[in-house]
Write a protein that binds this DNA or RNA. Structure first.
Lengths: 247, 247
DNA sequence: ACCTGAACACCGTTCAAGT
DNA sequence: ACCTGAACACCGTTCAAGT
């Protein structure tokens, strides 16, 4: 039987539910809570079942598989990120899109890799996103010869940075690993790598590969802002460029 | 006992190895082969042990944990991606870096997410990468007020796109899922989403969210090239921009 | 030093059986 | 229709014991 069930146990025999609300939405919601707490790696269906005080097999009545459930979790987190067409030009709309994506994902940092791995392959509710990006790109002057490339770059720019910013650190022995990396970083030979050592104070724990805390503890706000501006400036140059290579 | 062991079984009693070559490197190499075949999701230490015809616990003499082993696998794949300082300006060096990273990772597509999730937090052999990027940025005119931001953008641009391009599709029922997505994509209402439908032929199976095969089957070459050019143009604009916001 | 062999505490998923 | 209860085929990791 499912362990724990500390006090209340309203019903423990098979049959249709009396007043239980084991809906699909509740399962997704509990799954998201678990992921927020323990991360994607340690997340398990059996924990979800325990939280709901049901058997693991119950989950399978409401969800097809673990992967399907995770897809629904990422859809839930993505809900509402796509800005309305509203006023403002395509630059404003894209800036808004990027910032809203960041805000949504920062509420559930552990879902970042899920989205990177699943939105890339899952259409769920994101038709609004696709159409919004296409419209913005057409407004920016995209043509048949560069629309696909520009579209792919927008999607990857939106998600790529944050996937990395929120990439999980080694879970086993967290502060031991942090101390080891910090020591190793601080003991780099100044003669062999002078520029690295000189700029270490600027980068330590605030730059990829050189950090021992991830983006949910040490956000990379200014870098994300730079990322957005770099992308928008580069995109405009790309779309205004003379014809030539397109395939 | 470990199953299979079809024909040869040179030694099956405990003790020091007679002539076995169960080195750390061989374990990492076999692990990479497994990942290439079955993907990160289905990869297991026990399979590696089976391939080497040893008990799972043997792995733990040569590696600290599964995560540590995976870190070594990604280091192996990353070996040799950092270009030498050589001739050419910082733009050439960075273009080379991006393209060599792409070439290396395309040989082992399933490792892409590993790198995205681990290089972001693991220093392994990548001091050459860090120093190379810093040097290139200084040559490009980066200063104390924007070096960190530019550095983070370079690293995320290098890995972000390919992490998405090679993101795994649902593994269970692959062609069933592909058919379902394709059908759903082709049945979008033209009245509700006119621009999407109009540009569908251009995007179908060649654009994020709208594809049913991932980057190892349908590469996004021209989009990656666009991504690199967009980033380089945007980066130059960012570095040449007047002082102002930097924190 | 390096491996066997067994055990521990988990997984996702399936399926008959209940009500 | 919706859940129990048990089972199947796995995992990563630990640890005593062998040589």
């Amino acid at each position: 039987m499912p362990p724990a069930a500390p006090a209340k146990a309203p019903r423990k025999t098979a049959g249709r539910p009396v007043n239980s609300t084991i809906t699909h939405e509740r399962i997704v919601s509990v799954a998201l809570e678990q992921i927020d707490r323990v991360g994607i790696h340690a997340f398990s269906l059996r924990d979800v079942a325990r939280s709901l005080d049901v058997y693991p097999s119950t989950i399978y009545w409401h969800a097809a598989s673990k992967d399907a459930l995770l897809a629904d979790v990422s859809s839930l987190v993505m809900a509402g990120v796509v800005p309305p067409r509203g006023e403002g030009d395509w630059r404003d709309w894209m800036r808004k899109l990027f910032n809203r994506y960041r805000k949504s994902i920062r509420k559930h940092p552990n879902v970042a890799q899920l989205i990177g791995a699943q939105l890339a392959s899952n259409a769920s509710l994101s038709i609004a996103l696709i159409e919004g990006v296409i419209d913005a790109l057409l407004e920016a002057g995209a043509t048949e010869t560069n629309l696909r490339e520009a579209y792919n770059c927008v999607i990857s720019a939106m998600m790529g940075f944050m996937t990395m910013e929120l990439a999980p650190l080694p879970t086993d022995d967290p502060e031991g690993w942090a101390a080891a990396l910090e020591a190793r970083v601080r003991s780099v030979d100044p003669l062999a790598h002078p520029t690295l050592v000189r700029h270490l104070p600027l980068l330590a724990n605030k730059a990829f590969i050189l950090r021992w805390q991830n983006g949910s503890e040490v956000p990379l706000n200014s870098s994300f802002d730079a990322h957005v501006e770099i992308f928008l400036a580069g995109l405009e140059a790309f779309l205004q460029r003379p014809v030539g290579s397109g395939a």
